[in-house]
Amino acid sequence: MTVSLRSFPALRWRRGLQQLARLDYAPVLGLRRFGHGLLLVAAGLALLFALTGQPRPLASWHGMDLLSEGGLCGLLALWLAQLRSSRPPGPVSNRLFLGLAAWLLGAWVDLLDEFWLLPKAWWWDNALESGLTLAGIVLLTWGLQGWRQEQLALNEQLRRRERDWRDHRRLDPVTRLADAVYMSQCVSQQLQRAEPAWLLMLGFEAFEQVLREAGLAEAEALLDSAARLLCLNLGRQDLVCRYAGDRFVLLLPGLDETSGPALERTLAQALAALSHADAQGRRWQLAVRSSGLALPAPGQPEELMLELARRLASA
């Protein structure tokens, strides 16, 4: 039996650190090297303790304190790295970053206490510890309040692309729509509500030709344009997801056997009118096929969508 080197946890750790080092970190207050600055301040504090304090004898080290305070420092540093590598710079980001950084330094001073004894008469280490932690938590709270408002604004932008809940694993990287699994969850909720709705699938006639003749980049740009065009044509309660390939699946609540097909025709015409210009200046305008069914309908959501895909494939 062969054992892969990668199965050793120690090597996976190294890989994790390598991944962390590859990330792109947002600047804080315009400072790109904020992390290095933070390290420098932490080292300065450690030096201050080493120069002014009495090393604590090994016998009076508290294992539990070291573990909890060291762990808190480590986790705060990780949170800061995660946040900086995922958020764009801006006022809200700055508050969050600075809050976490101040809290981290407070925790660091707390940790240094465990290694060096300072004379009881000195007050600055306690002030530093409490002040930094308090400032950090206040900044973080202020930042989270901003984050909430920012998120509400973003939710409004994402309307028609998501409904009721969010799952980033279900996002399609090309069109930035949710995928078929997300749609099937929404359809099953719709089925539970037992209200009328129209489930619709749209697809291009000769998409593969674009892929081969204009290339992958153009084909994906075409899909992205199509997704945006569909979003423009939808109401607030509607949802569009990417099914697979060049197929889009739409859930239109409140429509019935007569209004559903009418909107279906309108959407298919809108998509067929899309004329995508590629980098060579060639225009691609593809015929569109559509197929829809009224909800509630018997069957699992996946089967309903599969039925629509089958109708589209054999149309």
């Binding site: 078929a180 699994v181 099914y243 697979a244 996946e302 895909a309 089958r310 054999s314």
Partner: peptide
């Protein structure tokens, strides 16, 4: 698979 949609779209019904 639970949802063979991608296979159906790319390979046929």
């Amino acid at each position: 698979p639970r949802d063979p949609g991608a296979q159906l779209v790319w390979l046929g019904p």
